[in-house]
Amino acid sequence: MKGPLSSLKILDFSTLLPGPFASLLLADMGAEVLRVESPTRMDLVRLLPPHDGGQSTSHAYLNRNKRSIALDLKRPEAVEIVGRLVKEYDIVLEQFRPGVMERLGLGYEALKAINPRLIYLSITGYGQTGPYRDRAGHDINYLALSGIASYTGRRDSGPLPLGVQLADIAGGSLHGVMGLLAAVIHRQATGEGQQVDVSMTDCAFALHGMAGAGYLGAGVEPDMENQALNGGSFYDYYRTRDGRWFSVGSLEPQFMEPFCAAICRPELAAKGLSPNAEDQRALKRAIEIEFEKRDFAEWQALFAGLDACVEPMLPLSEAVEHPQIRARGLVQEVPREGQAPQRQIACPIKFSAGLPPPRHAGGALGSHTMEVLRELGLDEAAIAALKSARVVG
């Protein structure tokens, strides 16, 4: 079993989260991914706690099923090695600021001259054009500039620093994979490669699925707690007597009615669809009062068999053991060299033909350098010379 993307060979120059998460998905689906890493400037995710067996758990997960070659890209010999690799690895993924790969002699035009079928995915904070193209940024900045943070939070406490890196993953990683695979389909039809420009800010901006449409089409500015789905209605989280939380998403009447009956307030169901802000505030307060009357376990037992779009908010330690997560096989054992297997999140995409089992967790920097150089046809003397000159690590 090879996976649906087993025909793809990808050179991954990215670090941190957006690019590596994208190439993780590709590798899980069978693509051959070779990370090109600096032997002197380590990917900081390798240092990120917590650690298991002396290795960052984040790095071991994000770099599952990938090989690593350590090359000093400032050396012409390393650039020559990349040129040889591009003849086989006809997809490049990079995450530098615009212009960096060009200065290294590894920009799209330079590598396209070696392999005209090359697909070259560039993931950046602000894209290859525009006044912010050279500006530094992180996930929180992209969410702020794109407008998402302006209506994600509470009026009395302000915007929320999200626990999940939304712009990095939903923006850079997932849109990057979509763009790359679209370019692959185009190449299959035409024989032409191309560069794919993915900006995390662009993609975050595109996530305004409903609020953005409302503002651009009708001039309605979204704000914190003034939308039906951002805390402006009863669609929200509610604290139990013992300090835990439940999510209530009973928007439709067929869910609202059994929910209100379950909390012994059937008369509240009629207010669920009211567009009036005061009605929604009153409804929320009534629901808050009811949830504060019982402990988490009591509510959990009550709603377990009720189809009302009400679910407990679980810490990650409980989420990984939830029967739905377990039934979907979302936690798997991944082999590690010289160590016991490590539990990791599995690929979330299911195929009727199946996926290959995980091959290995992310390994040491440059752990496949010698293997890759031999595959390129370099003899031991040439490899020794490259090591001596510190071109490879």
Rank of each mutant, 00 (worst) to 15 (best):
Arg328Asn: 13
Leu62Thr: 10
Glu192His: 10
Leu104Gly: 04
Leu71Asp: 09
Leu216Ala: 15
Arg135Ser: 06
Ala389Asn: 04
Ala136Leu: 05
Ala340His: 07
Asn276Pro: 10
Glu37Tyr: 01
Ala270Ile: 15
Gly191Glu: 03
Leu111Ile: 00
Ser58Asn: 11
Arg133His: 03
Ser146Ile: 06
Arg135His: 08
Ser388Thr: 14
Pro341Asn: 08
Gln254Glu: 12
Leu93Tyr: 09
Leu207Lys: 07
His208Gly: 04
Gly83Thr: 08
Leu111Gly: 00
Ile289Ala: 15
Asp279Arg: 05
Gly54His: 13
Leu111Val: 00
Asn65Cys: 10
Ile325His: 11
Arg359Ile: 04
Gly179Pro: 06
Ile123Glu: 06
Asp72Ser: 03
Tyr142Ile: 01
Gln339Lys: 13
Gly107Gln: 01
Tyr142His: 01
Ile119Asn: 01
Gly305Arg: 06
Asn65Tyr: 03
Ala78Gly: 05
Arg133Thr: 05
Met224Tyr: 05
Leu160Ser: 12
Ile114Ala: 00
Val248Leu: 14
Leu34Ala: 09
Ile287Gly: 08
Val310Leu: 05
Gly179Thr: 02
Met256Ala: 14
Arg84Thr: 00
Gly83His: 09
Glu380Gly: 07
Gly127Phe: 00
His208Pro: 01
Ser352Asn: 11
Ile114Tyr: 00
Tyr215Asp: 10
Trp299Met: 08
Gly219Arg: 12
Asp28Gly: 13
Leu16Gly: 07
Gly99Arg: 07
Thr369Asp: 07
Arg390Cys: 12
Pro98Leu: 01
Pro50Asn: 11
Pro4Leu: 08
Gly176Pro: 01
Glu278Ser: 09
Val92Glu: 02
Arg46Asn: 00
Ser199Tyr: 10
Pro357Lys: 07
Ala211Tyr: 11
Ile91His: 02
Glu278Phe: 05
Ser157His: 10
Ala346Val: 10
Glu288Phe: 13
Pro348Thr: 14
Ile119Asp: 03
Leu302Gly: 06
Arg374Leu: 13
Val198Glu: 04
Ala27Glu: 08
Asn65His: 12
Ser388His: 14
Arg67Phe: 11
Phe21Met: 11
His186Tyr: 12
Met313Thr: 14
Gly338Pro: 06
Asp295Phe: 10
Gly163Thr: 05
Thr124Met: 07
Ile185Ser: 04
Arg133Gly: 00
Asp379Glu: 01
Ala31Gly: 03
Val100Ile: 00
Glu77Arg: 09
Thr369Ser: 11
Gly338Arg: 09
Pro159Val: 10
Leu47Gln: 15
Ser38Glu: 01
Thr369Leu: 01
Ile140Arg: 03
Gly176Trp: 03
Gln188Val: 06
Glu80Gln: 12
Asp223Glu: 14
Val310Thr: 07
Met42Glu: 13
Ile114Leu: 01
Ala167Met: 00
Asp12Asn: 12
